[in-house]
Write a protein that binds this DNA or RNA. Structure first.
Lengths: 219, 219
DNA sequence: ATCAGAACCTACCAGGTGGTCACTTTGTGA
DNA sequence: TCACAAAGTGACCACCTGGTAGGTTCTGAT
C-alpha cells in the first residue's frame, strides 16, 4: 500500500488543492450555502462528480478550506508562550495584511454569520475559534492593562475581536472608506496601549518583523 | 378605483403582514438565500403561489422585511435634532433590548454579511444604513468627546458601530457567555463617556423589564 | 510493456427552487 | 343581494441541488 500512497501524493494531491482553492474563493464571494459543488468543480476544472471523488461531500470541502486557512495564518504558531506585546503587534499586522486581501476577510465574514446557526457545519469551528482567540488575548490584555481595572481583560478581549469583525463588514461594503488599522490602533490607544509602528516589515522601520508570509486573515 | 383600494386595505393587508412577519423570522434563522418562498408561505399559512400574488418576487419580500424593521426601531424618528446624550442612551437601550430578541439580531447579522456582495438585493440598503448611522453618530461623538482629539468622531462612530456588529456575532454563537451591553458601556467609558443607567424605563425593580414592545433590533 | 488502482466522466436520481398560468373561492362596497 | 375584484389554489415549468453508479481513461511503479 506504500506504492498506493506515493502515487496518490502526486496528481491527486494537486487537484485536491485546486479544489479547496476554488472552494475558498467561492465561499468568500457568496458564503457556503450559496455555492454549489458544480460551481466549485467548474472553477477547479472538473465535473462535480470529480470533486466528490476527492471529498466525501460538500461539507468536507468547507472543513478543508477552514483547515487550510488556519495553516496559512498559523496563529497557534505563536503559541501561548509568546510575549504580550508581540501578540498584539502580530494581530495588528494581520489587520494590516487583511486590508490587502479581501478574499480572506470575505470568507470569514460570510462564514461566521452563517455559522451562527447551530446546524451549520462550521458552527463548532467558530465556537472553538473565538474561544481560543479569547484564551490568547485575555492574558495579554491582563498584562498590558495592568493596574487599570476598568475594562476587564475579558471585556477588552471581546471588544477587540468584535471591533475587528465589525470593521470587516463595513470595509467589505466600502473598502476605500474604511481604515481598519487606524480604527484598531485607536482602540488600543484608548486603552492606553501603544500602537505598533506603521510598517515594521520591509526597509526603514525599527523592528524587522516577520517574513512576508503569503497572506493572512481576520483574527 | 377608490373602492378597489379600500377593499385591498382589509384582508390583503393582513395576510401581507403575516407574510413579511414569516419571512422576517425565517431570514433571521437562516439568511435570505437559504429560505424558500414555500418556507415563507407555509409559515404564513398559504401556498407559495399565494405569496407571489402579494409580492412580485422573493426579493420584494426581503425589501419589505427591511422596511418594516426600520419602522419598528424608528431610528430616524429621533431625527437629527435629538440631543447627543439622548441618542447614545437610546442606542444603548437598543443594545439592551437586542439581548432579548435574538431574531432581530440574527436577521441583521445574516443579511449584513450576505449583503457584502454587491449583487445582493440588500446591498444598497446596508450601504445607506451604515452611512446614515454614521451621519447620526459623528456629531454626537464630536460633542461628547469635546476637546480630546484622539479618537476622531469619525473613528469613534465607526468603532461604535463595528463593536456592536461584532458583539452580535459572538452573542449569537454563545448567548449566555456574552454581555453585549456591558461591552458597549465599557467602550463608552474608555472614551470618557458616561454610561446611561441600567434600566431607566419602567420601575426600579430589577425584573419586570420594559413594556412588551414586539421587538427591536441591532443598530 | 504491463496492469492495478487512482482519477475522472457521463448519466442518472429524487427532491427543491423561483416563477407562471388558468382556475376557483372568498370578501366586500354598492 | 349581487357582481366583480381580490385572494388563493394546484398543476406545471425549466432549472438547479447534492449525491450515486458504472464505466472509461490516465498514471506511474514494477
Amino acid at each position: 500500500m506504500t506504492d498506493t500512497e506515493r502515487a496518490r501524493s502526486t496528481k491527486g494531491e494537486r487537484t485536491r488543492r485546486r479544489i479547496i482553492d476554488a472552494a475558498g474563493a467561492l465561499f468568500a464571494r457568496s458564503g457556503y450555502r450559496a455555492v454549489s459543488l458544480r460551481d466549485i468543480a467548474a472553477r477547479a476544472g472538473l465535473t462535480h462528480a470529480g470533486v466528490l471523488h476527492h471529498f466525501p461531500d460538500k461539507e468536507a470541502t468547507l472543513l478543508h478550506v477552514l483547515r487550510r486557512r488556519d495553516e496559512i495564518d498559523a496563529l497557534p504558531v505563536l503559541g501561548p508562550g509568546i510575549g504580550h506585546r508581540e501578540l498584539i503587534d502580530h494581530l495588528v499586522r494581520i489587520v494590516d495584511r487583511n486590508s490587502r486581501t479581501p478574499g480572506a476577510v470575505a470568507l470569514y465574514v460570510h462564514l461566521s454569520a452563517e455559522a451562527t446557526d447551530p446546524a451549520h457545519p462550521a458552527h463548532p469551528y467558530f465556537l472553538d475559534r473565538y474561544r481560543s482567540l479569547r484564551a490568547l488575548l485575555v492574558p495579554a490584555f491582563a498584562a498590558l492593562l495592568d493596574g487599570r481595572p476598568d475594562p476587564s481583560p475579558e471585556t477588552a478581549a471581546r471588544q477587540f475581536i468584535a471591533l475587528q469583525d465589525g470593521l470587516q463588514v463595513q470595509w467589505l461594503l466600502d473598502p476605500d472608506a474604511v481604515d481598519m488599522r487606524a480604527a484598531v490602533v485607536a482602540f488600543l490607544r484608548s486603552l492606553g496601549i501603544a500602537a505598533p509602528d506603521r510598517h515594521p516589515p520591509d526597509a526603514p522601520a525599527p523592528t524587522t518583523g516577520t517574513a512576508p508570509t503569503p497572506d493572512e486573515r481576520s483574527v
